[in-house]
Design a protein around this nucleic acid. Structure first.
Lengths: 237, 237
DNA sequence: TCCTGATTATGATAAAAATCAGGTTTATAG
DNA sequence: CTATAAACCTGATTTTTATCATAATCAGGA
């Protein structure tokens, strides 16, 4: 179960470049990164990094979807983040000098670039634009995390599930039909995003279906009534 | 209800300097900050900044304790953070280019320095040590926020309350007697830290008292059995 | 292809926590 | 000092959500 090393497109020509925090980084620095990075492919279900391990660099997603999750009480998983091409992973541990607090697992076959620790830290230090970008990224994520704390504390499961579906849609977008969520997640994984029991998630998804909000077909989820879903999520902030 | 302007100690000689993210900042930059900052005093209960407002700079706490809280569903408060002397406030909004997502309210009489937006952003840009410090700070806070998400999703209220008491102790320390928590919070505020109903908090605090874990005397909380409190919190990460 | 384990589904039950209702104490403004 | 509101406390009740149990379906490997 080890990944394959591959030769990805040059960083400067990476399709994800303008979707990433590197969009404003200096060209010379991207050149440096390009020289030292190590690209690998991971099959669905493979682990990119593991909770508890020491970080030796950061990962930049070239292709594929990845879940970042944390094992809590009695091994129950909490999904902290859904990552997509262009996203960085593992910078939190690196920048705070801690071990990984969560694991990254491929939700589908992926292509990921690894950038060694010293290189990326040096570049962040000398590239103002990149470090401001990182500050911006972390601030935004902190805001999201705090909103999530508020919602977990105050919103019922039904609203949180609706919100999670909107969040998944926001993150991964939709398929050609413009309504099927462009990712396959198990009911269990959805429950671990919402922070609830799997059975509750299954039950509420059935209700949403009965209410004509969504359509279910195995792991495919179609959003039939976006407005109703938004109203069900009862967002106000 | 407006604050008084005051003349605080020079930033270089500030008692909080070495407890703050400015501890490694360049002396020249502290000098600049010192020249432009505006210091004010706030009475207990006064608002330092308000959710929804645009940030015009960051606040650095010189003296006193401050709660940072967010108004969620039907006006119910969630306390996001407890801040103490040396802490910065309002940088998240500033760095992510958003409005304040939470309000800051004095838990007791406070002395706070305000550093204007452009000045602090410029200094962060040119002071590598400070920007790395900020990255470290944000990464650590993000980690804490994610842990809180996991706990809200998985831990029962009793454990979360015990954890909150440990957190308060960690943040504000204890009085001379070495067991009274060095802050006065209402039951309602504690509930808003834990993310539960006020009555549940009151009930559980009474239980903790009955179990000999704590002693209650109005808003004073004495931790009698620290080990038992830790065990009640059932921490494992 | 068939077998086997995992996932999905649904009902019944139990547990946890919120809400409601009341009385008491404490703090505060006049 | 007193009036009044706010905060605190406790019990009863209801709501929400988790857990348990069991069946059906699906997916992947021999």
């Amino acid at each position: 179960m080890t990944q394959d090393f591959v030769e990805n497109e040059h960083c400067m020509r990476c399709a994800q470049r303008h979707a990433s925090v590197f969009c404003t980084a200096h060209a010379d620095h991207l050149e440096e990164i390009n020289l030292s990075r190590i690209c690998s492919e991971y099959k669905k279900g493979q682990v990119i990094f593991n909770e508890g391990a020491h970080p030796f660099g950061v990962y930049c997603i070239n292709e594929g979807k990845i879940k970042i999750s944390h094992k809590g009480q009695d091994g129950r998983e909490v999904i902290i983040r859904l990552a997509k091409p262009g996203d960085l992973m593992g910078y939190k541990a690196l920048l705070s000098g801690n071990r990984y607090h969560a694991s990254a697992v491929a939700l589908e076959d992926c292509s990921v670039c690894f950038i060694p620790r010293d290189l990326i830290l040096n570049i962040i230090k000398k590239d103002n634009s990149l470090s401001m970008g990182m500050l911006n990224l972390l601030s935004s994520q902190l805001r999201v995390a705090e909103t999530q704390v508020a919602h977990l504390a105050q919103k019922p499961v039904r609203e949180r599930l609706a919100e999670a579906l909107l969040f998944i849609r926001e993150t991964y977008g939709m398929e050609q039909d413009n309504c099927t969520l462009n990712v396959r997640l198990s009911r269990d994984e959805i429950a671990n995003i919402v922070g609830t029991a799997t059975e509750s998630t299954i039950r509420l998804l059935s209700e949403f279906k009965k209410d004509g909000i969504i359509e279910l077909e195995g792991k495919k989820i179609k959003v039939l009534d976006y407005n109703k879903l938004t109203r069900t999520a009862n967002l106000q902030d």
